[in-house]
Simulated scan of single mutants.
Amino acid sequence: MYDYFYGPEGEQFSFIRVPKLFFENEAYRSMSAEAKILYGFLLDRVSVSMKNGWRDEQDRIFIICTIEEIMSKLGCGNKKAIQLLTELEDKIGLIERKRQGLGKPNLIYVKNFIRTVDNTGQRHLWKCQNDTSGNVQITSLEVSKSHGSNTDNNKTDKSYTENPIYPRKEADGMSEHRMYEDYFRDALEYDVLLQDYPYDRETLEGILDLMVDVCCSRREYIRIASDDKSRDVVKSRFMKLSSSHIQYVLQCLHENTTDVRNVKQYLLATLYNAPTTIDSYYRAKVNHDLYGT
């Protein structure tokens, strides 16, 4: 028999994150539940590829995930694994496979689920409205003249190649900063955090601003605990954080007894390390509560 969760134990584990958009928007209504889970698994691999430097000549990130791995992870047969990959590629368009030949596994490009590109090269962003969680629409993004279909100009436009996630400004004037802010407010369940931690409103606002600033940064590296980390790696870490990670960061702040001279650097390090330190923190806390050690 499985035991119950006690205290903070439910927040100890790592999870595969499946975008909420898949369950809230009509465009993904026909997508099977297994395909949504598989996309979450493939998306998790993207950050590993970033660390390994797995990029093609166009700076596009790819992953390697064999049919056998998918069969093992999803507990399905060969036919089902192939069917799900085909659904993601041909029916939904969220992945693209590239054959290597000579018995080598396919390269898989995991497509950005919140951004599309039309025939003219313009990018469009899924924009979640704050007033109703289920109301999602697609909005057009203004594209720089140097970021059109002319590939030669694209290569010389340094401001875009340094930060390919979002263009600088949307057609209606909404800034890149606002786009990231909307994303984090939804992903971190920011309004719920404000309700649960009313006395930490200023700290939560500071954390949100810091995460958005990092994602909008044009710097190649971000200083984390005296080390220079790739901006893309830091951004990837931040965009995978959940409300439980922010709760953990708040607890670290409350329990810290040393003098923090640079709060910004402390928060950057704590946020960046949260996915890898949260498990051991709560495990130690549970052991302390149980055994008083």
Results as ranks from 00 to 15, higher is better:
P198A: 00
I95M: 09
V214R: 12
L188Q: 04
Y166A: 10
E205A: 08
L125T: 08
V136L: 13
P198R: 01
E142C: 12
L210D: 08
I114R: 14
T161L: 11
D213L: 11
F113W: 10
R123L: 15
H147S: 09
T116R: 15
N112F: 10
V136M: 14
L210H: 05
T156D: 07
H147Y: 09
K98N: 12
V136R: 12
K145R: 08
I95P: 11
R201D: 04
L208G: 13
E181H: 03
Q195T: 06
T120V: 07
G103F: 00
N150M: 02
G101R: 07
V214W: 13
L125M: 10
K155T: 13
H177R: 14
I207T: 10
H177N: 14
N150I: 00
R123I: 15
S175C: 05
L210I: 00
P164D: 07
F184Y: 02
E202F: 13
E176C: 02
E96V: 03
T203W: 06
N163P: 04
D213E: 14
G206R: 04
P164G: 04
C128V: 12
E202R: 09
R115K: 14
K111V: 09
T139Q: 09
G134D: 08
Y199S: 13
Y166F: 09
I108R: 05
R97E: 04
V214Y: 15
N106W: 06
V192K: 05
E176P: 02
K127N: 04
Y180L: 08
T139P: 07
A187N: 08
G121W: 00
E205I: 12
K127D: 07
I108G: 05
G101Y: 04
R97V: 02
I95K: 11
